[in-house]
């Protein structure tokens, strides 16, 4: 068996030599290395966000009222709009990967541009229509936090601060990932347009795609957990 493996190695024709890093023997090895490497990075990302989701779960079970009342300060309409934006951006991302895989360089760059425009749209909704009003309503923990409902409702300011702390920590971390995603897509798109040699190989775009879909998945969970806690 081992001898056969060796045999195949020596007959390797090195067909894609120009896109093959020196440490790899062939493209197949290189491609799967990249995919597995990206996935193990995504595993760290899953646990990174996962720990925050764990905090969320523990406190939501302990303080259901704080989460109920806190979420009423959020607008499900904006959340839903942002979900649509991100889902659409995931679609444009796979179309970009598809174009790259089939050798349509310019098309791929166009879809990448569309994706980053959508991502920027997501940030605009997030910052202008969600975070900024929170600032105006004094809902940013530690900055100017004021929980006006304390007198009338059943949630103490500390618990509300906890809810908004989690909200800003989780959507903020997600937002940072979106910003990084935009940066990656801008760089890749530019390189594609310039026909840079590293983007003649579709793998960088596919890896960016994996990253972007992960960002999408996080939002798929954030949306119901923060915006759809329950109508009374």
């Amino acid at each position: 068996m081992s001898v056969e493996a060796a045999h195949s190695l020596h007959n390797e024709p090195h067909e894609h030599e120009e896109h093959l890093a020196h440490q790899f023997m062939n493209r197949e090895q290189q491609d799967e290395s990249y995919i597995v490497g990206m996935w193990s990075f995504l595993v760290t990302e899953i646990l990174f966000f996962g720990a925050l989701f764990l905090c969320y779960s523990i406190f939501r079970i302990q303080y259901p009222m704080a989460f109920q009342e806190g979420h009423e300060e959020l607008s499900w309409v904006y959340g839903c709009a942002n979900t649509v934006i991100l889902l659409t951006s995931s679609l444009t991302m796979v179309l970009s990967v598809h174009a790259a895989q089939t050798g349509k360089r310019i098309l791929s760059a166009m879809w990448l541009a569309a994706t980053s425009v959508l991502a920027a749209g997501f940030l605009v909704v997030k910052l202008a229509f969600e975070w900024y009003p929170k600032f105006q309503h004094h809902l940013i923990p530690g900055v100017n936090f004021h929980w006006p409902h304390e007198q009338f409702t059943e949630v103490a300011a500390g618990k509300a601060e906890l809810f908004f702390g989690l909200y800003f920590a989780m959507t903020g971390l997600h937002g940072i990932h979106v910003v990084i995603g935009i940066g990656i897509m801008a760089v890749l798109g530019t390189m594609l347009l310039l026909n840079h040699k590293s983007t003649q190989y579709y793998m960088p775009i596919e890896l960016a795609g994996l990253y972007w879909h992960f960002v999408d998945i996080v939002w798929i969970f954030l949306f119901p957990l923060f915006y759809l806690i329950g109508k009374r």
Binding site: G142, K159, L162, A169, L173
Partner: peptide, 26 residues
């Protein structure tokens, strides 16, 4: 990643009182 986010939360808590690890805030 788990310890990274945990320590990041501690750092955030020193600046903004998000209270995840602070019993005074629940």
């Amino acid at each position: 990643p788990v310890v990274a986010i945990t320590l990041a939360l501690v750092a955030v808590e020193r600046v903004f009182p998000i209270g995840i690890f602070n019993p005074a805030q629940g």
